[in-house]
Write a protein that binds this DNA or RNA. Structure first.
Lengths: 242, 242
DNA sequence: TCAGAAATAGTACGACCGTTCGATTTTTGA
DNA sequence: TCAAAAATCGAACGGTCGTACTATTTCTGA
C-alpha cells in the first residue's frame, strides 16, 4: 500500500466543505460553505437517529446511504472514514445537547433555579423514548473498553458536561442555596446515577413512572443538602407534594 | 432453500450435549453429558470475557474460534446460531452473578446485614476493571431498542435480580431496620443508579475513588430511611466515619 | 472391542462491510 | 456564461461475518 496512504491522507480531511463558517456576511442562517454543508448536516441528523437506536458501533455507511437516498461513496466522501463519522455524530449530539439542556438553563439565576432546570431538561432529554437515545450513555458503554479517537472525543464531551454541572452545584453552594459542606462530587455522582437509572428503566425495563422516580430522587437528594433558603426555593420549583 | 429449513431446525437445538444433567449418579462435579459440555463451558467463559469488553453485539464466532484454537464450525455447532450463543452468555453471566453476589448474601440475617452484603458485592462485581465488564449493563444499552429473544432473556435476568433486591429491601422494613414508610421502589432506583454511575465513572472516565463515592452514596441513602436500630447496624456494617 | 454417536474440522456460499478510484453531475463565482 | 471546483455516483476490492453441508476424528457404552 504505497500510494494508498497518500491518497487516504488527502481524502480524509478534505471532503466536502469541512470548515465551519461562523461569520457569513449576510446573516447567520445562510451557510457559508454551500450545499455540501447542508447535506452533511442532513446525513448527521439521520446518523444521529440511527446511532440512538443501534449504537455508534451499529452505524453502517451503507444503511445510512440507503436512508438518505444517496450512494455509499457519496455519504462516505463527507467524512473520509467511519471513525470520523462516529466522531461527527458525537459532536452533533453534543451541540444539540447544549442547545436543549445547557444554554436554556443559563437564563435562570445561579443556584438552585439553574441547577433545577439543568436536571429537569436532562431528564427530559434522556426519557424521550420515541426519539434518539442518549449517545453519551450508549457511547460510554460501547467505548469504555475501546481506546481510540472516538473514545477520546466522547470522554471530552461527557467531561465537559459534567464539569458544567459541577459548576452549577458549586454556584448553588456559593449563593447559599446548598450547605457549605455539601460534597459536590458525591452529589454529582448521585444525580448522574438517577439519570442513568432513568435511562435503564425507561428503555430496557419499560418501567412506568420512572421519570417521577428520578424527580423524587432529585428532590430528596437536594433536600438533604439544602439550606433553609434552598428548601423554600426547592418547594417552589418542584411544586406541591413530598 | 427447500431442505435448508428442515436442516436448520434440526441443527439449532440439537448440537452437542444440550441437556443439563442435574443428578448424575456418581457426584455433582462429574458432568453427565461428557466432553461436549466441558468445551461448551470453556467457550462460554471465553465468550463472556469477550462480551464484557466489546459487548454482546461485538461477539464474533470467528474470533471466538481463534481464541479457543478451534474451527469456526466447531464452535458454531455448540450453539446453532449466534443468537443462541448470546443468550447462553447472558445465562452464564447470570449464574456467575448469582454465585458471586446473591447466594453469599443469603447467609446473612435478613434486613440490613443481607442488604448490605448484596450491595457491597454488587459494587465489587461492577468495579472489577481488569476483568469482565457487567453484561447486564452493557447488554441493557445494546438491546434496549432491539426486540428479540436476546433482549427477552436479558430482561428476564435483570428483572429477576431486581426483584431479589427489592425483596431484601422489603425484609429490611419488616425486621425493623428501615422505616415502615420507606419507598422501596425509589430506594431500589437510587441504589441501581449508584451502581450505574459507578460503572460509568470507573470504566469511561476512570475516576479515582468512585467506589468510595458509591459506598458513601449507599450509606447516606440507607441512613435516611433507617430506624434507630437500623442506624446502629449501618454504622457497624460500614465501619467508622461518615 | 467395536459399532454407533458425538464432537470437531474443512470448505464453501452469499451478504454486508469500509474503502478506493475514476467518471460524472452539480454547484459556484468571476 | 463558462470554466474551475465541489459533490455525487458506480463499480470494484479485500475482508469478515454467520451459516450450511460434508467429511473426519474422537469419544462412549454395551
Amino acid at each position: 500500500m504505497p500510494r494508498k496512504t497518500a491518497s487516504n491522507a488527502r481524502s480524509a480531511p478534505r471532503p466536502a466543505a469541512a470548515a465551519r463558517g461562523v461569520a457569513p456576511s449576510s446573516g447567520e442562517t445562510v451557510e457559508l460553505p454551500g450545499k455540501g454543508h447542508q447535506t452533511r448536516q442532513a446525513i448527521l441528523d439521520c446518523a444521529l437517529q440511527m446511532a440512538g437506536r443501534i449504537g455508534l458501533e451499529g452505524l453502517s455507511i451503507g444503511v445510512l446511504a440507503d436512508r438518505m437516498d444517496m450512494s455509499k461513496s457519496g455519504v462516505f466522501a463527507h467524512f473520509g472514514s467511519r471513525e470520523e463519522l462516529q466522531i461527527s455524530v458525537i459532536r452533533r449530539y453534543h451541540s444539540l445537547f447544549e442547545a436543549d439542556v445547557f444554554y436554556p438553563a443559563l437564563d435562570q439565576p445561579r443556584g438552585l433555579p439553574r441547577l433545577h432546570m439543568l436536571f429537569d431538561r436532562w431528564v427530559q432529554q434522556v426519557s424521550r423514548e420515541v426519539e434518539t437515545g442518549c449517545i453519551y450513555i450508549s457511547g460510554a458503554v460501547e467505548f469504555d473498553d475501546r481506546p481510540g479517537p472516538v473514545r477520546d472525543a466522547l470522554v471530552l464531551m461527557v467531561q465537559t458536561w459534567h464539569d458544567a454541572l459541577l459548576r452549577a452545584v458549586s454556584q448553588a453552594v456559593e449563593v447559599g442555596h446548598l450547605q457549605t459542606n455539601t460534597p459536590a462530587q458525591l452529589l454529582m455522582f448521585e444525580l448522574h446515577g438517577l439519570i442513568l437509572a432513568l435511562h435503564h428503566d425507561s428503555r430496557l425495563l419499560r418501567v412506568h413512572g420512572c421519570v417521577e422516580l428520578a424527580r423524587h430522587g432529585y428532590r430528596r437528594l437536594i433536600g438533604q443538602y439544602a439550606t433553609p433558603t434552598g428548601m423554600k426555593l426547592l418547594q417552589t420549583l418542584c411544586g406541591a407534594g413530598d
